[in-house]
Amino acid sequence: MTRDGTPGRDSDDNRVATADRDGDRGGDGDRGGDADRYDVPPDAEAIACPRCGRPFAGRRQRDLHLGVDHADLTADERAAFEAAREEETADLRRFRILSLGLLVLLYFGFLFVYALVG
């Protein structure tokens, strides 16, 4: 999803993250050569996107990529995207709740230390 909430790709946000070590973004913006710009260790197993060839560490990341970056999905790919999105949403929600709890504990911990020492 883009920043304004519409489906699709952010303009250059993903391209900056995939720049090589020299800072070259590669190509003229053509998406056909995206797979060539990723360094996958030779001993690592990567799951490639069936449309653009971009490698991913897992099926969930690939399914999320398919749903966000490619519009013409089959029914199975759409179902996999929806399942991956639900899992990702649940994981993010859990992370946010745990982070908030940690911040609250940290705040009150400092408050009690200040009350005892100060």
Score class of each variant (00 low, 15 high):
V117F: 09
A46P: 04
F56N: 02
F81P: 01
R85L: 15
R31G: 11
L92S: 06
D34Y: 07
L103P: 00
Y114T: 01
R60D: 14
E45F: 08
H65Q: 10
R85H: 07
E45V: 14
F112G: 00
A44V: 01
R78W: 11
A83F: 04
L64V: 13
N14W: 15
R94Y: 07
P42L: 08
G58Q: 06
A80R: 15
R85T: 13
D36G: 09
F81V: 04
R31Y: 07
F95V: 00
R62V: 01
P55I: 03
L73G: 06
F81M: 04
L92I: 03
F95A: 12
F95L: 11
R51A: 04
P55E: 09
D22N: 14
V117P: 00
D24K: 05
T2W: 00
V40D: 02
R9G: 09
E88N: 13
V104L: 14
L73F: 03
A75Y: 01
E86T: 15
R54A: 11
R21V: 13
R15F: 14
R85G: 11
F95Q: 09
G67N: 14
P55Q: 08
D28H: 08
D24Y: 03
G67Y: 12
D36W: 00
C52A: 08
G118P: 01
Y38R: 06
Y114H: 04
E77C: 10
R54K: 14
A35C: 12
I47T: 04
D34I: 10
A57W: 09
P41S: 08
V104G: 08
R9W: 08
E82T: 13
G29A: 05
A71Y: 09
L100I: 13
R78T: 12
G109S: 03
G33E: 05
I97K: 04
G8A: 09
V104Q: 02
D30T: 11
D43P: 00
R25P: 01
A48T: 05
G27L: 03
R9T: 15
D76G: 05
G53M: 03
R3V: 14
D69S: 14
S11D: 14
M1N: 10
A44D: 14
G26S: 02
L100G: 08
F110Q: 04
T74R: 07
R9K: 14
P42W: 05
Y114W: 11
R78N: 11
R93N: 11
D22K: 10
E88D: 13
R78E: 13
D63I: 02
G58M: 03
R78F: 11
E88R: 10
A35G: 07
E45L: 13
E45A: 12
D12I: 07
A90I: 01
R59C: 01
R25I: 01
E77I: 14
A57P: 11
R15M: 08
G109Q: 01
V117G: 03
L100N: 10
R96G: 02
D76A: 15
L98F: 07
E87R: 15
D13H: 13
F56H: 10
L102W: 07
F95P: 00
E88V: 00
D20A: 07
R54H: 11
G33P: 00
S11I: 01
D72M: 05
G118N: 06
D22C: 12
A19C: 07
R51M: 07
L116W: 15
G29W: 02
D28E: 06
R94W: 09
L92G: 06
A80F: 12
Y107V: 09
